[in-house]
Nucleic acid binder design. Sequence first.
DNA 1: ATTCCATGATCGAATTTACCGATTAATAAC
DNA 2: GTTATTAATCGGTAAATTCGATCATGGAAT
Lengths: 296, 296
Amino acid sequence: MELRQLRYFIKAAELSNFTEAANALFISQSTLSQQIQQLENELKTPLFDRIAKRVRLTEAGKLFLPAARKTIRDGEDGKQLLKDLNELTAGTLAIGLTYGLSDLVIKSLKIFTDNYPKILVQVIYGTPDGLIEFLSEGRIDFLLSFISHQHSPIFESILLFESKLSLIVSGNHPMAKKTNIRLSDISALPLALPVTNFSIREFLDLALARQQLLLDIRLEANDINILLQLADAGTWCTILMASSIFNFPNLKAIPITGKEMVRQATITWPKDTYRKTATRTFIDIIQIQASNQVFA
Amino acid sequence: MELRQLRYFIKAAELSNFTEAANALFISQSTLSQQIQQLENELKTPLFDRIAKRVRLTEAGKLFLPAARKTIRDGEDGKQLLKDLNELTAGTLAIGLTYGLSDLVIKSLKIFTDNYPKILVQVIYGTPDGLIEFLSEGRIDFLLSFISHQHSPIFESILLFESKLSLIVSGNHPMAKKTNIRLSDISALPLALPVTNFSIREFLDLALARQQLLLDIRLEANDINILLQLADAGTWCTILMASSIFNFPNLKAIPITGKEMVRQATITWPKDTYRKTATRTFIDIIQIQASNQVFA
DNA sequence: ATTCCATGATCGAATTTACCGATTAATAAC
DNA sequence: GTTATTAATCGGTAAATTCGATCATGGAAT
């Protein structure tokens, strides 16, 4: 039994006429006749009475017709489901996110969910390593981070924007007026920094090692918001990407000079897997947002 | 999209492994791979992520899987419906019946409905002509009557039993002791007979005309039961088939002599149409009942 | 009655499709 | 590296679908 046969049967039952049904189906009458017979053979039940020059549904045929219709309809429903999914009216979108890119995502999310309210969006914060793992497992659809995987065999990345490593200080901090600063100028400041397994910290530590500098680290936290609040209160300064302070109007990001101090925000997804429309659409949105945004 | 492809997809989704799925489906791995691709093309949506050496459902695939299962299940349900119908656990049986054969049907019905309680039985009384019309229209499945259609091109008949036209009298009637009677002996009796469009009346009138006899007809009725009750009360006699008096133990049927006075009870159904199991089964039962029954 | 028309079944041929086996490519595990 | 596993691909074959033509039947028109 195949859907084709059910489609033929339904049309023939509706028209009670094989010739007309065949025309409506754009097949020959002989084809229709044969396919109906084949269906009847498989069901071991005649579906039509062949009386004189017209056909009429048998009782079995009458019973089978609604069942056949239902089967066809279910098949169509399945197709529609996928169509809806591609048209962003259903489904989920799981976004992996490292600290420091929240602002961009939040702005983009507003645009996305306004246009596609039926998509369930999941925002998963994590470390780059952990999120890469999630990406492999298919638990997130893509990943926003400052780590590029442009040369990976299994991941693909595109650049969103560049952001400079910056000293984050409160607006009334003595250094708040500076437009840029050298890494060596910071060494005297008491700092609150992310813990060492955060990628920004790894990035910073690498630069410090290269320049053979040490910093006055007074506090470590595994939460960027805490660091920002501490800076906002004027207690300590911190070092983060310039793009991290969007939520704190009182804070100032003073870019640290040096071309190695620039990090690239990227979107990463698994190579050679289907990217659903929700993913592609969201990435489009986030790219536009990124290009509109101006970071130091 | 065909059910075959859905079956393949479901198995592959369940096993997350094309090779195993192909084995389970008794097809080659290449066939499975191709059919899945074909389905994906039609849906314009990849259903599996091909990552490294194993496949994994895409979100679209996860969404589509229950829909595919439902479609398959509905198809199976349709088949089961017909199976049930053939196995007499569902469906209807519409019996056309002329007056005079009720007793046989009622006895057979009891056996039938005891064994197949889910079959809805419809008993349609009518005149032979009307019932033949119903048979043509498919409103009844078969017809019990004293009219044979053994030589009709569109109807088929089998003989159930023979019954003699009889004078029906109350047990205390002067003639009740007779074992048979000639038609000419009846002409003096006041009679209550079926109306002229009843087939038994047509049959009787034909015989009377042949023998150039007239009867003393005092009453006509279009209901056999009324005639039987009148006879039972001793008011009048009537002429019916011997098989009609089963419900009236006080009545006696005195066969009328002459070979033309024998009528054949038959079952008739349309030639060359599917006879459902309910029909075939009921006919079997009624044939057995008829052979067990002894009529004058 | 006879002819004509409409309809479904059937037949043979052509086309399409499903299927298989062998091979290739990719990758994970050793 | 090497091996084993797995899915994709290719070419060929068998099967199924489809078509056109024809046949058989029954109803309608004449």
